[in-house]
């Protein structure tokens, strides 16, 4: 068991994650929170319907307040995305975009939901024939080929670096990168060819993907394009742990009223568990998840 083991690790820094951190740290659990404040869908919102806040608050104000509160209870914040999760005996390990590994007795998933589809011509037509949404799953099918990755965040950049091990040439198409400095250095020292201030306009091919047309007018001759928008979400991080998704849409994580998933020690709260997309629902679930995870971690520590 690792020496610097946390009791509760939380992925996602929106209202569910912050409330979970406040309650778990309030129960004296050793808490770490991963993620970037500005990635929460609340960040750019104005909130007028959250109980006890009569005046309209900006999401940014609420999130900054929540962070200070959680810190005052003792929670530690790591401003990085998580790119990998693993379930070990009696603990979970997570890997950050900078490649650091952290271990925790329990894990709370509060990374919300993000857009996955690019919504451009050719995308739907070529799914499975050159269009992919999962570098980890599909990199192996592009050995010795030319590929492009599109996205501005950690999933796209770590994906492009991973693909260098398989593909002949890797292009990264991005408007403006929002990643840590260390990841930025890794990218700049790699063989990834970067098309900056660009986005995908159309995916072109006959039977399979043959080229990608960019908004800059440039055309990339590639066999495949990996669409990796945002940070890694539920399907990539949670599915790997064996989490059960909701039967109806297969997009959200199934939890019970204690916010437990089907995996012992693994909880989920907020948008990631389904609608409604409301701060009140997120903090409610976050509160329960934080308390439950802290209690569960204590039991594991004592056993």
């Amino acid at each position: 068991m690792p020496a610097d083991l946390y009791d509760v690790a939380i992925i996602g820094r929106g209202p569910a994650g912050l409330q979970a951190a406040i309650h778990a740290a309030g129960k004296k659990a050793k808490v770490v929170v991963f993620g970037k404040l500005e990635k929460s869908s609340l960040y750019r919102a104005h909130v007028a319907n959250f109980c006890c806040f009569e005046k309209v608050m900006t999401g940014k104000e609420l999130l900054e307040g929540g962070t200070k509160q959680a810190e005052s209870f003792g929670a530690v914040f790591i401003e990085q995305d998580i790119i990998e999760t693993k379930s070990e005996t009696d603990c979970f390990t997570v890997v950050t975009e900078n490649g650091q590994t952290y271990s925790s007795r329990t894990l709370i998933l509060t990374m919300g939901i993000s857009r996955k589809k690019l919504r451009v011509k050719g995308e739907k037509e070529f799914v499975g024939r050159g269009v992919s949404y999962c570098v980890d799953c599909d990199a192996n099918f592009y050995k010795g080929m030319d590929v492009a990755v599109v996205g501005n965040e950690s999933a796209a950049v770590t994906g492009a670096i991973t693909l260098l091990r398989y593909a002949k040439q890797v292009h990264l198409v991005c408007r403006k990168l929002t990643i840590t400095d260390l990841l930025y250095d890794q990218l700049n020292n790699s063989d990834v060819k970067i098309s900056r201030k660009a986005w995908v306009k159309e995916i072109i091919g006959s039977n399979e993907v043959e080229e990608v047309l960019l908004t800059t007018g440039e055309t990339l001759k590639v066999n495949g394009i990996f669409i990796e928008l945002g940070a890694k979400g539920a399907m990539e991080l949670a599915a790997n742990l064996g989490v059960v998704f909701d039967a109806e849409t297969f997009s959200f994580i199934e939890t019970n009223k204690w916010q437990e998933t089907n995996i012992p020690g693994l909880y989920a709260a907020g948008d990631i568990t389904g609608q409604p997309w409301q701060i009140a629902k997120a903090v409610g679930e976050g509160c329960v998840a934080g308390m439950e995870a802290a209690v569960y971690a204590r039991k594991l520590a004592d056993s």
């Binding site: 999962c134 980890d136 192996n140 399907m235 599915a239 790997n240 297969f250």
Partner: peptide, 13 residues
């Protein structure tokens, strides 16, 4: 499928 693929694990059940 493959053992390293998260979405594969999700649809297996």
């Amino acid at each position: 499928w493959a053992p390293w693929c998260g979405p594969c694990k999700a649809i297996a059940p």
